[in-house]
């Protein structure tokens, strides 16, 4: 499962809109990932490189 570096994440919500499996929810204070299939799409999107 991909990991979010909370110190870097801006909570912009973009990763949730590109995940092909609808695994990501970005709330006003955290990124929740469920059932990740490790496709790497969200990581490629992130404007600040918060996803590892």
């Amino acid at each position: 499962m991909v990991k979010i570096n909370k110190d870097i994440c801006m909570l912009c919500g973009g990763c949730a809109s590109v995940c092909p499996f609808n695994c990501i929810t970005v709330t006003e204070r955290e990124v929740i990932i469920e059932n990740c299939r490790e496709c790497g799409t969200c990581e490629k999107f992130c404007p600040v490189g918060a996803i590892e």
Partner: peptide, 17 residues
């Protein structure tokens, strides 16, 4: 942009990179 409501109705709103 997250478009979770539409997704919860089964609509595919995923954006390709």
């Amino acid at each position: 942009v997250q478009s979770k409501v539409a997704k919860s109705f089964g609509l595919n709103t995923t954006l390709p990179l």
